[in-house]
């Protein structure tokens, strides 16, 4: 089965890094990188568009932050938490951000940068397990 991932982050350098890491982990079949959040919503308008299994989401972005993104996406896809596992990947180590993340059921975990290949592999496995359970059920 095909596993897809989105990376949403405005940091160009980070984007390059995470692309290498995901590539090395070989955990995902399909990758998509968004530097600008608003592009996600542009793509969502096309009819054959599908949500990925995993989203790596930054918090601090211009135009729209990570929280606003989740809220907006929730409005468009009501079954968001069932279909998609959102991981916050932020350079923030602020306690308030971690607390806030717990209030969103869509968020599976809060990861502080930098992330390693192992972490990405673990996430992919966890998502696999979850999907299997859901399919069996």
């Amino acid at each position: 089965m095909i596993k897809s991932v989105w990376v949403i982050d405005d940091d160009e350098i980070y984007q390059m890094i995470i692309k290498k890491l995901i590539g090395r982990s070989q955990a995902f079949d399909e990758e998509h990188y968004y530097k600008c959040v608003l592009d996600v919503f542009k793509d969502l308008e096309s009819p054959d568009f599908q949500l990925p299994d995993v989203i790596f989401l930054d918090i601090n972005m211009p135009q729209m932050d990570g929280w606003q993104f989740i809220e907006r996406l929730r409005e468009l896809c009501p079954d968001l938490s069932a279909k998609c596992n959102i991981y916050i990947v932020s350079s923030s180590i602020a306690y308030s951000d971690k607390e806030r993340a717990k209030k969103y059921p869509e968020i599976s975990n809060f990861l502080s940068k930098p992330v390693s290949v192992e972490v990405i592999t673990e996430i992919a496995e966890a998502v696999n397990k979850k999907t299997r359970c859901r399919d069996q059920a």
Binding site: D11, I13, Y14, I17, L21, S91, S112, K113, P114, V115
Partner: peptide, 8 residues
Amino acid sequence: SHSSNLES
């Protein structure tokens, strides 16, 4: 964000 990039 810069330091994490450097690290990565």
